[in-house]
Simulated scan of single mutants.
Amino acid sequence: MVVFPNAKINIGLNIVEKRQDGFHNIESCFYPVGWSDALEILPAESFSFQSDGINIPGDPATNLCTKAYDMLAADYALGPVSIHLLKAVPIGAGLGGGSSDAAFTIKALNELFGLGISLEKQLDYARRLGSDCAFFIENKPLYCFKKGDRFEEISLKLEGKWIVLVNPELHISTAEAYAGIRPLKSENDLRDMLKMPMESWKEVVKNDFEISLFPKYPVLKEIKERLYHEGAKYAAMSGSGSTLFGIFEEETDLSYKFNEYKVWQGYLK
């Protein structure tokens, strides 16, 4: 079985408060994009995990795909599998790539072994692996709150819009990003702001991480400004960085304009 774990962007990201468990409560809209890894899971004589493409640091035994398998194997009679991950979505880029790999592993194992795990239980499993893993179970535009693992439906529809993602190949850890944050409740409801015309989002739909990360990494601010210069209706940093995205009304090939960076572009669904 081969699946394609896709990335996501954050359209607006408010860091509301620090929780007693050390995490933060946030408010954001998660929106899936087509930049994806390739994940192959096949029955095998013994369990194995290997990856190609972008190098994934750390012990393979601690990879989220392995953890997802171990978690389900503790509750279900799974047979051994070989997992092969072709990593294409940048790491530490604010795109949720590792979380998506984990969630797609849960969904693929559920299908491969006919486990019949309910949607709610799949969400619960995903929440154990990471704050934004659960989003990729349903993998559709959602308003996200709490740790980014609780969701409400949102009427935001960007189907047919063109998106350009630019990654300057900076790895920004979650800990580094949060170190410069002062949590503050937003005066306005993000869901209401996203009902406004996209042209007005520039002034009101913010990513709180930009406040501390732009001065530290000026290239991020520069890329955002260049996206607006090229005609983006809205541009922002995704998650805790370091990927910037621009949303355009029509197809706009910017690969040659940002050829010093990693670029993915395509239509939103």
Score class of each variant (00 low, 15 high):
A7Q: 00
K8C: 10
I9A: 04
I9C: 08
N10G: 03
N10Q: 04
I11Y: 13
G12S: 05
L13V: 15
N14C: 08
R19F: 07
Q20P: 14
H24C: 06
I26W: 11
E27H: 06
C29R: 08
C29P: 03
F30L: 11
P32A: 04
V33W: 05
A38D: 10
L39G: 02
L39H: 03
E40A: 11
L42P: 01
A44F: 00
A44E: 00
S48R: 00
S48A: 04
Q50V: 05
D52H: 12
G53E: 14
I54Q: 06
N55K: 15
P57K: 12
D59T: 01
T62R: 12
T62Y: 10
C65E: 08
D70T: 08
L72R: 02
A74G: 11
Y76W: 07
Y76Q: 05
L78N: 04
G79K: 13
P80E: 04
H84Q: 06
L86T: 05
V89I: 09
I91V: 12
I91A: 10
G94W: 13
L95V: 10
G96C: 00
A102H: 02
F104T: 00
T105D: 10
A108N: 10
L109A: 13
L109I: 12
N110K: 02
N110S: 04
E111A: 14
L112H: 15
F113C: 05
G114A: 03
L115Q: 10
G116P: 11
I117N: 09
E120Y: 13
K121G: 12
K121P: 04
K121D: 14
K121H: 09
D124T: 07
Y125P: 00
A126G: 09
R128I: 08
L129N: 07
G130F: 14
F136R: 00
I137W: 14
Y143S: 13
C144P: 03
F145Q: 06
F145E: 12
K146E: 11
R150K: 09
E153L: 15
I154V: 06
S155Y: 10
L156C: 10
L158P: 04
E159Q: 09
K161E: 15
L170T: 02
H171S: 06
I172H: 02
I172K: 02
S173V: 03
T174F: 01
T174R: 03
A175W: 14
Y178W: 03
A179K: 14
R182P: 02
S186G: 14
N188K: 11
N188W: 14
N188R: 15
L194V: 09
P197C: 01
M198T: 10
S200W: 14
W201D: 08
K202E: 11
V204L: 15
E210Y: 15
I211V: 10
L213V: 04
K216P: 07
P218K: 07
L220E: 05
I223D: 03
I223A: 03
E225S: 10
R226E: 15
L227C: 03
Y228I: 09
E230K: 11
G231R: 14
G231F: 11
A232S: 13
Y234S: 01
A235L: 01
M237W: 01
G239F: 04
G241I: 00
S242K: 02
F245R: 07
F248S: 03
F248K: 04
S255R: 07
F258I: 07
V263H: 12
V263C: 14
Y267V: 09
L268C: 05
K269A: 09
